[in-house]
Lab assay of single mutants.
Amino acid sequence: EETGVRVELAEEDDGEKIAIKLWLRIEDIKKLKGKYKDNEAIEFSFDLERDVPEDVAQEMVESGYVCEGDHKTMAKAIKDRVSLIKRK
């Protein structure tokens, strides 16, 4: 499903790190509610043992990086990427 958002690794995952750096990349602004630039990327750290995707997305909303209306879309994108990383 195309959401307009993609999360990718910002650094090589060696399988050892607990906290990883990720990029939340805006790919299609028409599919989102907030005002973003095409190909805008937000770099953030995610602790694989402690962080919760919904909470991280909420922090982005509170910091003004993400529109409240896009919270669920961002949280799902983060959750999907993190579950792929954890499965390795």
Rank of each mutant, 00 (worst) to 15 (best):
V82G: 00
L84V: 11
D47E: 05
A75D: 01
H71F: 14
G4P: 05
F44N: 00
K79I: 03
R50Y: 08
P53E: 05
I78K: 05
Y36S: 05
D55C: 10
D80I: 00
E27D: 14
K76S: 09
A77G: 02
R81K: 14
D51E: 02
A57S: 04
V5H: 08
Y65C: 10
I85A: 05
K79Y: 11
A77L: 11
E49S: 12
V82N: 02
G64C: 01
I18H: 13
R87W: 06
D14F: 05
G64K: 03
I18D: 14
E54T: 03
K76R: 12
R81D: 02
K35L: 06
R6C: 03
E62D: 15
D55W: 03
V7K: 04
K72C: 10
D70N: 03
A41W: 08
K79L: 07
S63Y: 09
I85S: 00
S63K: 15
I20T: 10
Q58F: 08
Y65N: 07
S83A: 13
L9T: 06
E62Q: 12
E16I: 05
E43A: 11
R25K: 13
A19Q: 14
D47G: 01
S63I: 07
R81N: 04
R50A: 08
E59D: 11
I26K: 13
K21L: 00
S83W: 03
E49V: 06
K30I: 06
L84W: 08
A57E: 01
L84D: 11
V66F: 07
V61F: 02
E11V: 01
K72D: 14
G69N: 11
N39I: 05
E43L: 13
R50C: 06
E11G: 05
K72R: 12
N39V: 05
L32A: 06
L32H: 08
E54Q: 05
A77K: 06
G69M: 11
M60Y: 01
K31H: 10
K33P: 06
M60L: 15
L22K: 11
G64H: 00
Y65P: 00
L22T: 04
V7E: 04
F44W: 05
I29F: 12
V52F: 07
D80T: 05
D70E: 05
E16Q: 13
V82H: 01
I26E: 13
D38W: 08
I42R: 03
C67S: 11
V82C: 02
R50Q: 12
G15M: 07
L9W: 09
V66D: 01
R87V: 03
D51P: 01
E27L: 15
Y36R: 04
L84E: 11
G15A: 08
L22S: 06
E62P: 00
V7I: 12
R25P: 14
A57P: 00
L84Q: 14
S63D: 09
F46A: 02
D55V: 13
R87S: 08
H71M: 14
I18N: 14
A57N: 00
S45R: 11
I29H: 15
F44R: 02
V61S: 01
D47M: 00
L9I: 10
E54G: 03
V66N: 03
R25N: 10
A75E: 01
I85C: 06
E12D: 13
I85H: 05
E62F: 05
A77W: 06
I42M: 09
E62L: 09
E43R: 07
G4W: 01
F44Y: 08
F46Y: 14
F46Q: 00
K86I: 00
E62H: 11
E43F: 07
G69D: 15
L22V: 04
A57H: 05
C67Y: 15
S63V: 06
L48E: 02
N39H: 11
K79E: 12
G69H: 14
V7Q: 01
E54I: 00
G69Q: 15
K76Q: 13
G69P: 07
G4M: 04
V56P: 00
K37Q: 11
D47V: 00
A75R: 01
V7W: 10
I26V: 10
S63R: 14
